[in-house]
Every structure is written in C-alpha cells, then in structure tokens.
Amino acid sequence: MFARLNLRTEVLQSYAFVARNFNLIKRYWGWELVWLAYSTATSLAVVFIGEGSALITGAEDIDTSYFVLYLLLGTLVWGFLSGLFNDISEMIQWERWEGTIEYTLMAPVHRFTQIIGQAGFAVLHSLLFTMTIGVAMIIFFSLDLSDANLFGALLVLLAGSLSLVSLGVMASILPLLYTERGTQMTHIVQAFLLLISGVYYPIEVLPSVLQTLARVSPVYYVLNGIRSAVLEGTPTSELWGYIVPLLIIGVVGMPLGVWVFRQAELYAKRHGKLKRVG
C-alpha cells in the first residue's frame, strides 16, 4: 500500500490540506479571535485557583507561585493537545458540513498523506494558538522561567502530538459512522482524557482504576514531562522516560489510525453514508 509513494506528489497533496485549512482560518478570523478570547479566559480562571489557594484553604505555607505554574502548564498543555485533537477529529465533520467530503475522498490521495497534511496543520495551528495564550499569561502573572528547560518541554510536546494525532484520527471517523451525533461523541473522548490524565492534579488522587488508565494516556506523559522540564528544570537528556513512551504510542498509533480510518471509509461507502444531495 505504501510501496509506490511518489514523494513529490505526496508532499503536494499533504500541502493541499495545510493550505486549505490556513485559508479557512483566514476567512473565519473572527471566529478564531472569539476562540482565543474564550481559551484565554478559561485558562485565567484555572490559574486563579492557584492564586487563591491560600485564601481558599486558610493554609499559609502554600508555594503559590509553584501551584500557579503547575496549573498554568496544565491548562496550556491541555489547550494545545485538545486543540490538536479537535483540528484532527473535525476533519470529517467539517467536510460533511460543507458537502465537500465526496470530492476529497474521490481524489487519488492516500489516507496516510491526508492525515500527515491535516496533522501538520493541526500542530502549527495549535502551537501558534497556545503560544499566544502562554506568552500573555507569563506576562500577566509575571512568572519566572529562567530555570525552565523550555527546549526539552517543546520536545515532549512534539512527541506527544504524534500520539494525539492518532487518537484524533480514530475519533474523526465517528461522524462517518454516526451521521448526526458523531461530533458530540468526540467530546466524550476529550472529557475522559481530561479526567484521567492529571491535567490539574496528580493522578495519585484518582481511584486506582482510573490511575491505571492514565498510564496509557499520552496526555499523562506529556504533562509529566513538561512539568518536570519547566518546574524542576530537568535536562533534556533525562526526559527520554517521557518522550520514548510517547513516541511508541505515536508510532503504533499512526498506522492503526490510518487503518481504522480506512475501515470507516469502506463502511461508509458500502452503506451510502457519504452522500449529501443529488
């Protein structure tokens, strides 16, 4: 199946998705701004929990700035990963809504190529988006990041992207299988990841069943790796314990995602689920 890939063509085809999506953002810039404002506000709301921790609990020996940074990393990483997941999992939903899905699936494009294009866009988009919020927050709370290993954190984040892409691809097929309710179902996947992965708390507070699940959630490794790099300043050479599991999940997940997607496509073509009108 992947044997006779013509690299130049595949690159051009992947780029088709990147360019198309950035064109869409350009046209829907108002919506992008609204989303930015919304995300900033929710991030702020979470981080203020840290600011208020002494007031809430009455305890005086809380390291507030550590707590604030802990929560901030949680909200930013989650913002990045869920944004990435959204961009990928919406790739079918959006085209169904526009009615273009038949034209995209009719084109001579390998699904792998399509997913690479879509993923490339999603990583760039989410990274720009999250960095905008992150910089605003760092200024707002005047945080000191001089000891943080930001490069290591970025490496962990990129390794994590790979595995989130494959999760997103698997979720993206839901609208193909369940024509009406598919998108809502991807939200359930997200809510569950948020619950188990320790975004705002250590997973040790969770019931043991959920703790076990957390250990297979890529989000868990991303958060731990980034917190370790930024909060403790762990050098990159010691971050492999986080990066390697993420790469493994990603490398196993990608072909699996492509395969699952292909099965859903065949199902849709057998049962007439792509059709719109005419």
């Binding site: 085809q13 088709a16 198309r20 009615g99 084109a107 001579p108 719109r276």
Partner: peptide, 22 residues
C-alpha cells in the same frame, strides 16, 4: 450540488482540488 468550502473563493477551492491531484 456544487459542494465547496463556502467561505473560500473559487480560486482557493480550485487550488485545493488541483493539489489533491498532484
């Protein structure tokens, strides 16, 4: 049904379509 990305221009839509064909 002429299905397109409705907010994109004809050129942007055609460019997308043509790139898919390499």
């Amino acid at each position: 049904d002429a299905a397109f990305f409705k907010k994109l221009s004809p050129l942007e839509n055609l460019l997308y379509g043509a790139r898919l064909y390499g």
